[in-house]
């Protein structure tokens, strides 16, 4: 999107005026991929919601056994990690490569926090003999959260690659595509969790 960099109008104080041309942040390919991911998660959520509607008592009883505090902590961790990625992108826009790298590292650490909490949750579930075949609720709980968990892991791999690039000063006002593309994916992982958590852990 470098084509607009020299033609942006400037305000009275000499600062660039806000986004004149609408622009998608990140590569078009990642957005097509994100739409496919959202469709898959959306189908999964609908399947859960309607299976639950036909098995209310079973779903309510087994949902009560989930650790909502761990889920809430993970919500805070993902929201915070997403915020750190926003700060990294903002830093890259201002040519602050070192700051961008540090924000990305903070995002990786909070993302790893999500993994640790989730693994603790799975360990507790398996200790109680919860499995894919133990009930329709557990099938949905394990498959939905694990499908999301795999996205968190892929997101963390992407964040590490972005951190490495940021440390080498590869991102800046003329080269935002890479960091914006990775950021869009990480925010998608957060967005999906913001529906998955209330749907599977809370709504009863």
């Amino acid at each position: 999107m470098e084509t607009t960099s020299t033609s942006l109008p400037h305000g009275a104080a000499g600062h660039p005026t806000p986004a004149a041309e609408p622009r998608l942040a990140g590569d078009l390919a990642i957005w097509v991929f994100i739409m496919a991911e959202l469709l898959a998660f959306g189908a999964f959520f609908a399947a859960y919601a309607f299976t639950r509607a036909n098995n209310i008592e079973l779903f309510n009883a087994e949902q009560a056994g989930l650790d909502r505090t761990a889920g809430a902590i993970n919500t805070i961790l993902l929201l915070t990690s997403s915020y750190f990625v926003v700060r990294a992108v903002q830093a890259a826009e201002l040519r602050a490569a070192r700051a961008a790298a540090n924000w990305l590292l903070a995002a990786i650490v909070t993302g790893l926090g999500f993994i640790v909490v989730k693994l603790g949750e799975y360990a507790a579930a398996f200790a109680h003999d919860i499995s894919l075949s133990s009930s329709p609720f557990h099938m949905f709980y394990l498959s939905l959260t694990f499908f999301h968990f795999m996205h968190v892991i892929l997101g963390l791999v992407i964040l590490v690659a972005m951190w490495n690039n940021a440390r080498q000063g590869r991102y800046g006002p003329g080269n935002m595509n890479g960091i914006e593309t990775g950021a869009a994916y990480w925010h998608m992982v957060d967005l999906v969790w913001l529906i998955l958590f209330p749907l599977v852990y809370v709504i009863h």
């Binding site: 600062h15 005026t17 806000p18 622009r23 929201l79 915020y83 926003v86 903002q90």
Partner: peptide, 21 residues
């Protein structure tokens, strides 16, 4: 490249605090 595409750190921080709240 417009510098306002991703907002300001101040706005991002307020949004993050609101999300946590």
């Amino acid at each position: 490249m417009d510098t306002h595409m991703h907002g300001t750190p101040k706005r991002a921080t307020w949004l993050w605090l609101s999300l946590i709240g």
